[in-house]
């Protein structure tokens, strides 16, 4: 249900943009990027945003949500890399570990070692965020 709170914050940013746009008629598109490790459910977010946008200029906006892969950086050698879902499955192994990875993103780094130097002190550079990328506004 935290998706509702995120949707409300997004809506207020969208409405700000709408107010600042001269001759704005309606919001036609909202583009969002959701990190794979963000703990946010994409469909719940879409539903929440649709619901909170009712009766606002964003009511009928197309909601485009992209899921972004996590990016890790090795603290030792600075190398950056991403992982695919299949890598996550391969590295994390069984179901339970995958679940922990999903529910507890901060632990994700600990499942991975740097592919270049083998270091295992890793930062999550990307993949935890929920970013409102941009809004498309129709004007007169």
């Amino acid at each position: 249900m935290h998706e509702v709170s995120i949707a409300l914050s997004m809506l207020s940013l969208v409405e700000d943009a709408f107010r600042r746009t001269p001759g704005a008629r309606r919001v036609s598109k909202i583009r969002i990027e959701v990190g794979l490790l963000s703990l946010v459910d994409v469909e719940a977010l879409r539903f929440a945003l649709r619901t909170v946008a009712r009766g606002t200029p964003a009511e009928n906006a197309v909601i485009e949500i992209m899921v972004s892969k996590p990016v890790f950086r090795c603290r030792k050698c600075g190398y950056q890399w991403s992982v695919s879902d299949s890598d996550i499955n391969r590295i994390a192994g069984d179901e339970e570990k995958r679940m922990i990875l999903h529910i507890y993103p901060d632990v994700a780094a600990k499942y991975f070692t740097c592919p270049r130097c083998g270091g295992n002190s890793i930062d999550i550079v990307k993949g935890r965020g929920v970013v409102l990328l941009d809004v498309e506004i129709e004007t007169a």
């Binding site: 995120i6 914050s9 940013l13 943009a17 935890r128 941009d134 809004v135 498309e136």
Partner: peptide, 11 residues
Amino acid sequence: IVITSIGKDLI
């Protein structure tokens, strides 16, 4: 159509 870039991370 005006596209306004926002780029704000809510988390």
